[in-house]
Every structure is written in C-alpha cells, then in structure tokens.
Design a binder for these strands. Structure first.
Lengths: 210, 210
DNA sequence: CTTGCGATTGACTCGCGAGTCAATCGAGTC
DNA sequence: GACTCGATTGACTCGCGAGTCAATCGCAAG
C-alpha cells in the first residue's frame, strides 16, 4: 500500500484536494489537472491511485455516506429516545457534518445526491437507504401513535430529509445566513417545523410571546 | 420572426426536443446533435435559433420559473385564503406542474434548481425569489399568530419548498410511487406535514384509529 | 555498488462535441 | 423567369481535457 509511516499518504492528499476543487469549481467544471495542482502532485499520480475522475467522486461519496447511514442506524438503536429525539439527532448529525466538512458535504449534495441523473444514478440505492432508515424511525412513531397515521413513513422521511437538504443548500449558496448560531438553532427548529408543524398548536412548544 | 402561420415553429420544436433529451440523458451527457435529431432538424439550425446549448436550458428554465413566480404571487394575492390554504395552492401548483410536464420539471429541478453550482448560479436570484414569495405567505401567518414565532419565515419557506422538491425528486427517480392518486394526495399531505406537523396533536386533523 | 520495484513525473495522444460557415433551398415579389 | 433573403443543411474546425505511457526517482535489500 501507500502507507509508509512518515511519508505523506498521497492518496488521501489527492482525495482531499479533490474535495476542495470539486467544491470550488464543481465536478464538471474542473480538470483533473486542477486536482493534481491543488494536491501539489504530478498529473499522472492521480491516475496511479484512481482509475478515473469519477472514481474519486464515488469514493468521496461512498465513504461519507456510509458514515451517515451508520450514524442513523446507531441513533435509531438508542431505545431510550423518542422518535422525535431520534430525528433531532439525525438532523444534528447531518448539520454537524456540514459544519465540520462543508466542502465535502457540498460536493456530496450538489454533485451526487441532487444530481441523481448523472452520478446519483449509480448511488440511488445508497441514497434510498438513507431515506429508508429515516422512514424506519418515523414508522415506529406511527405505530406507537405519536405520529399521524395518514402520512406514510416514506412520505414523511422524504419531507424531513428534503427540508434538511434544502437548509444545507441555503447555507451553501448563501441564501440563508450560515453562522455557528444558525446551525445550532436549525437543528432543533427543523425538527420542530417538521414534527410539530409550522402552525401554533396547544400541544407543542408554545410560541414565544412578543 | 419564425411565426409564419401554417409553418411549424421550428424554434419551439427545438426547445421541446431539448426538454425531452435533457430529461432523458441529462444536460451534460447529451450532445447538441441529440437535440437536433430529436427535433428532426439539421444540426446547424439549432445554432440559427440559439447561441449555445446553455441558452436553451436558460430559456426553458426562465420561461417556466417565471410562470411559477407569477402563480405564487397570484395565490398570495387571494385575500380570502388562509396562509395554510395558500401554501396548499402553492404545493398544488408545483405538483400539477410536474404532473403535466414531468420532463420539463425534471430538467428544471435536476439541471438548474439543484445544480446551483453550474447553471443554478446564474439563476440564483430567480430561485431565491421563489423562496421569498413563499416566505411572504409564511410571514403573514406569523404576524396573525397562526404560525410559530420562533421559526423565521425564511427558514420555514426553505423547509416547505425543500419538502416539495424532495417529493418531486422521489417521483422522478422512482423512489416514491408516481401515480395520479399519489400526486393528488401529496398536495394535501405535504401541507399537513409541514404546517400541522408529523406529530398527532389535538388541534389538527385527528389520526385515523385502527 | 547494483539491482528491483513501487512511487512519481509530465509530455503526449486522441476522441469528443460545441460551435462555424459556405452552400443550398424555397417562398414571396416584381 | 430572375432576384432576394431568411430558413435550413451538414461537413468541417478546433480546443479542451481525460486518460496513457515511457522515463526517472529513490528507497531498501543483497
């Protein structure tokens, strides 16, 4: 392998450069040479470690997406949490992912998740898996009577995930203020919006007066 | 112009062909010649009517998006509707757009709206305008006390729009069943989910027992 | 020192596809 | 019939950028 201790892991170096370049220029509008330059590495070395430009994107996506799938699974396994608390943790996880690695998340969302026509197609099954895991959480809530029966768990999962992804998009493209504070507030607000609803209702958190 | 009565409007013919081809193959993975072939027209004629491949996409987007902006504006102007009813009509409009012109909506969502890195960037302002118009509806509801104060109207608008777009994505990529029935139900359900919330609450539609 | 071998280099190939353009068509006009 | 001019054609150009490859480097083992 390329794991000589002491030597920089060039493979990783190139992947990280790819994150930066893909995020800045977009996958379609950057050249492989841009990635090599960013990594401070010769053009050919990229092809020593990767078969193609696409493979880099695939690897970035799969690596990170699996982490998210595992995280959702673990959250769902916490039997002491209510469904709403679980969704709160899922939202928290995704938003934190963006907080800590905005470039990577931007690439995943913009180039893969929301581009199901090109690369997304390859990964539709993986993407669907995430929706399914969220749906599992919702389904439990429907069964225990917390959540409405007439909204299917698949439908609810899509709404929930869609809302979160739209928030990330908003931050990515400066349509929403992207500050630490906003991130933190958003975690709870998105759950309140989707679970509790936008409307004031006696049974949910009372609205702040004034 | 190209509006000789009796003669087919070739410009329109090419635009329609572009919708079909962009939807089927994706903007980046199709050739201009594919569009010409689909339109049954010589390659060069495409460049007689359009400056570039991009211009076709821009035109398709702007034309349709403006219709949606106008529609939202008109819905908001109906003073006899409650905010929730207005949102219901907005959801209905967008979903009907997909029902009637799935290819066009697919192109707009996949190639423009969700690709803010490439073409979206050009149109970010137009896209933002849609969020703003939805936010205006929400803001009115917040002011009259129907909607929660602690969720800003911009935030709520993003959640609402994000949920709808995710539903369309689900239909486009076969992650959700796409039948006439589902479309019809979705219109009300997405509003119920976002406004009323996923949770059962005394003040909203009671859950079906059994 | 030398041999072996993976890491590294970057000039080069080569196909693709956007955009050009000179030629042709054909409907209307006198 | 001859002329005009926009519509239409499709072969051609030309730059770009993904992927190749033969050469070189440099460490480690004998």
């Amino acid at each position: 392998m390329s794991g000589r201790s002491g030597a920089v892991d060039k493979r990783r170096l190139i992947l990280d450069a790819a994150i930066t370049v893909f995020a800045r220029q977009g996958f379609h509008h950057c050249r492989v040479s841009d990635v090599a330059d960013q990594a401070g590495v010769a053009y050919g070395l990229v092809y020593h470690y990767f078969d193609s430009k696409e493979q880099m994107l695939n690897e970035l996506f799969l690596e990170r997406w699996q982490i998210m799938l595992d995280a959702i699974g673990e959250i769902d396994a916490k039997t002491d949490l209510t469904p709403r608390q679980k969704l709160r943790e899922v939202a928290g996880f995704i938003i934190d992912s963006y907080r800590h690695e905005p470039d990577l998340m931007k690439v995943i969302i913009v180039e893969v998740t929301r581009a199901a026509n090109s690369f997304g197609r390859l990964h539709l099954e993986k993407i669907r898996e995430a929706y399914n895991r969220i749906a599992v959480i919702v389904e439990a809530a429907r069964r225990d009577g917390t959540f409405k029966q007439d909204i299917s768990s698949e439908f609810a999962a899509m709404c929930f995930y869609g809302a979160i992804e739209q928030l990330l998009s908003g931050w990515i493209f400066d349509l929403l203020p992207a500050t630490e504070d906003e991130f933190e507030r958003a975690k709870s607000l998105v759950v309140e919006a989707i679970c509790g609803g936008l409307e004031v209702s006696p049974s949910s958190t009372p609205a702040v007066s004034g």
